[in-house]
Design a protein around this nucleic acid. Structure first.
Lengths: 217, 217
DNA sequence: CATAACAAACCGAACGTTCGTTTTGTAATT
DNA sequence: AATTACAAAACGAACGTTCGGTTTGTTATG
């Protein structure tokens, strides 16, 4: 039987990838040297080249690992996607996305490194296929529910994509960029406001309130 | 009697900044060399160092120029801010932000370069002060209108910030990152869907089921 | 059990280039 | 004449990568 024994070389490879992730995500690709990676990984430069053809395949490998995470069907976010209960799942979506960003904030930064230094060469194709998969999985369920009148007019898929992208960007800026968005309120509160707007909009709903809509004077 | 005469040296400085902007925004800071800048600007390396203390001040200068653009009261976007007619101004906001991003897509990329390679060192303070200024300008007007019942409950400023950030991100990804978001629809249509959701939410409004989005012609 | 044989893992010096910056000297402008 | 603008060469340091040699671990053989 095949044992999953941890080879010594695996430890080195892991150390190199971890060091490279740390450095690429905090300095960029071009500004990170192989010697820096070697030192941080407590490994010789020659050893790195024994395991990796060159600097770029290290970067590529790191991006591949992020895709594995994001595409994992066991990921909570993906399970929410396949249930497709928008907009009831907005809170769950926010929580799951926060979890992804918190757990993989540095890997997410690599995407921006790729955009800046490689013109998005490594990630473009992936993003396109991912968007398609998402639309297929989530979209069918949604359009059915819309026919039943559970959702307002317009393409419901847009609403989900909009929210998902916004959540991702929100937490990425907060966590990966390290820039608190500070809408003048707590994080959780800001998410709550966003969800409220997504569901009900910012214009007052006329029915149960004495105030009826008096816009466009 | 200040002459606005264009000195010859100004032409060199301008060429250097233009070349540096092009290179920094497409390769990142660390991966761009002074020799590359010099060649693209048709200027000698020594000449660059005659006008700029070092490489980093070139980068800093470029970011400063972007702030000047964004803070200019004459900028259409800023004029919309000071009128604060949310959510009626959503279309105008989208258009103005698209204009800013289209006109300054490369400078916007510098922000991401700063985040990646300098941990946002150059931009952090600016963003904080800008958010405050925005909240002060736009916020007062909004809270008054909310008291008059023109807006739904919750902090109305969140809605504006939410929309503004989303528009910026949307156009930045489209134009600066060069990644078409392709929500399965036209750009203008996607913006329209977003605005509709912002105003009315995705849940159907009680008055007439499902078809309440007919106003705002 | 001991050991020879072999490959994978690893190291660190060295290669040729290129880096950011400085120095030196000349042309242009004032 | 004095100062600014510019170009070219040169500096030491650092770059990505290569390479010869050593250590380590496993397998085969006695």
């Amino acid at each position: 039987m095949a044992r999953a024994k941890a080879l010594k070389s695996d430890i080195s490879i892991e150390a190199v990838l971890e060091a490279a992730l740390e450095l690429f995500s905090s300095q960029g690709y071009g500004a990170t040297s192989m010697r820096q990676i070697a030192e941080k990984a407590s490994v010789s430069v020659g050893n790195i080249y024994h395991h990796f053809k060159n600097k770029e395949v290290i970067f590529q490998r790191l991006l591949d690992r992020y895709w594995e995470v994001v595409l994992d069907p066991k990921l909570k976010l993906n399970r929410i996607f396949s249930k497709a209960e928008f907009p009831d799942d907005l809170e769950d979506l926010a929580e799951a996305i926060e979890e992804v960003v918190n757990s993989h904030s540095r890997k997410i930064l690599l995407i921006y490194v790729d955009v800046i230094e490689f013109r998005g060469a490594h990630i473009r194709k992936f993003y396109e296929t991912m968007a398609d998969r998402f639309a297929e999985k989530y979209g069918k369920n949604l359009s059915e529910r819309r026919k039943k009148g559970e959702l307002a007019g317009g393409d419901p898929l847009v609403g989900v994509m909009l929210a998902v992208r916004w959540f991702f960007y929100f937490f990425t800026v907060e966590k990966s960029f390290g820039v608190p968005m500070h809408f003048g309120m707590d994080n959780r509160q800001a998410i709550g406001e966003f969800i409220k707007i997504m569901r009900y909009g910012v214009l007052p709903r006329g029915n149960d309130d004495g105030q009826s809509q008096k816009l466009h004077g």
